[in-house]
Design a protein around this nucleic acid. Structure first.
Lengths: 236, 236
DNA sequence: CGGTAACTTGAAGATGCTCAACTTGAGTGG
DNA sequence: CCACTCAAGTTGAGCATCTTCAAGTTACCG
């Protein structure tokens, strides 16, 4: 079994135990697994990509090298829903940690033309747009420490929804540099923000595992309201 | 005729001459027009709202009053596609200028259950998400002047697509304060950024009309690439 | 156990903010 | 048509957040 096999690797990050490959199974689609090192481009042409383990991101790089992450992907997420729905994705997807992806030929998806499937994808897209809106609020109107707090609350909530949180702690191997590119900050400032959160006893980070020590206070600091994530509980 | 009637008002901003109410007509939906002053809440319950004239925005306000605009709406845009697709919209919509909206009862839309309609809405949603991604890049990685340049390029492109640009100039009555809330800046800084763009002879603003004096240079400054807007030309 | 990526810290500087005063301009009523 | 009013725009000065540059230190991986 895939799940057992992955869990056997001791340092393998954030596996979705609720078998996200259920997506492929539900619609009877062939899926090939692939393991990818961290900091690599992930998308291959003519395939849809389902993230099974690890964390990835969508990002854009400006001509002068400035990089902005526009979304963080966790197990169970589809990396490129636009590839399925619109035959194109206008972004790159990179791994933030070592990842396992499930690859499904686009041709097979197109062939089955399943109404439930496009419905499910569109529901996911609406949720992703809600997340994007919240990122816009963060980037526009929250200061560094609030931005970081909000992102950690979001990740906690999303990881919990797929069973990857124990207590208030979860695996977190994203580098400070990548956090910086997600939060619109520099890695130096991310480091200071994290130190400040540690000093305030709001978080604890050790051995690639992050613990939210005082989630209520963290959520208050971030003005985090999970309503935007709850709405479409998004099966499939 | 609606279009003629609106165009009769001399100071009425950015009317979509290509009759955006074609949306309602195409699907044979009843639409009531309503005129709304600037800086007002726009959404009413149990209705879908189509923007016919003027400019509006989706926004969120934090507890301490900080406000972030997450999207700018122009004639032809649907203010609350989520209200139609998911029976809820987790944002407020405000008018930025005086507006005319077309209101369509949600019950009537739900009743017809037209597949083309949900398809069209989902296509619009994907385009909006592409715009949101670009806003994330701007807010995260562009400095003030680049952010403003990029937004002006975006508005130029979108307004041109609905026939509201003459030469390189279009009606623009959004206040500097609202620009600030869209760009994650203060109105004071927006003022300085606009002055700088004026001094560089990149834009000209007079009598509520904005002219892009050197669009190629402005687009280079913003690193603007209209691909994300072109993709789904979005009829309906 | 050596090498490299990631993290940490300090100091100086840039971008953008806050506060405050003033100017301009559009809409209103006399 | 003018005076009045209030919202919007403009400008200056000082300050906060965050950046840049640079020099370490730690931790992971082969």
């Amino acid at each position: 079994m895939l799940t057992a096999q992955i869990n056997g690797l001791t340092d393998f990050p954030t596996v979705h135990p609720a078998s996200p490959e259920g997506f492929a199974r539900r619609f009877d689609l062939p899926m090939r697994e692939r393991s990818i090192p961290k900091q690599q481009d992930l998308l291959l042409p003519d395939l849809a990509h389902l993230l099974l383990a690890g964390q990835a991101c969508r990002n854009r790089v400006l001509r002068d090298g400035r990089r902005q992450i526009t979304a963080i992907l966790i197990p169970g997420d589809i990396c490129d829903p636009e590839a399925i729905l619109a035959q194109r994705a206008d972004y790159a997807v990179n791994t933030l940690t070592r990842c396992t992806v499930g690859e499904i030929p686009l041709a097979r998806i197109a062939a089955l033309d399943h109404h439930d499937l496009t419905d499910a994808l569109n529901r996911r897209l609406r949720r992703e747009e809600a997340i994007a809106r919240e990122w816009i609020v963060s980037l526009g109107r929250r200061v560094g420490i609030e931005r970081m707090a909000h992102l950690l609350c979001e990740l906690h909530w999303r990881l919990a929804a797929v069973g990857l949180v124990i207590g208030d702690s979860f695996e977190m191997r994203i580098t400070q540099s990548d956090f910086a590119d997600a939060l619109g900050l520099t890695s130096v400032h991310v480091n200071r923000v994290l130190k400040s959160l540690r000093d305030s006893r709001l978080i604890h980070l050790h051995g690639g595992r992050l613990t939210l020590l005082d989630r209520p206070r963290l959520e208050r600091l971030a003005q985090f309201d999970p309503a935007y994530l709850e709405t479409s509980a998004v099966p499939v």
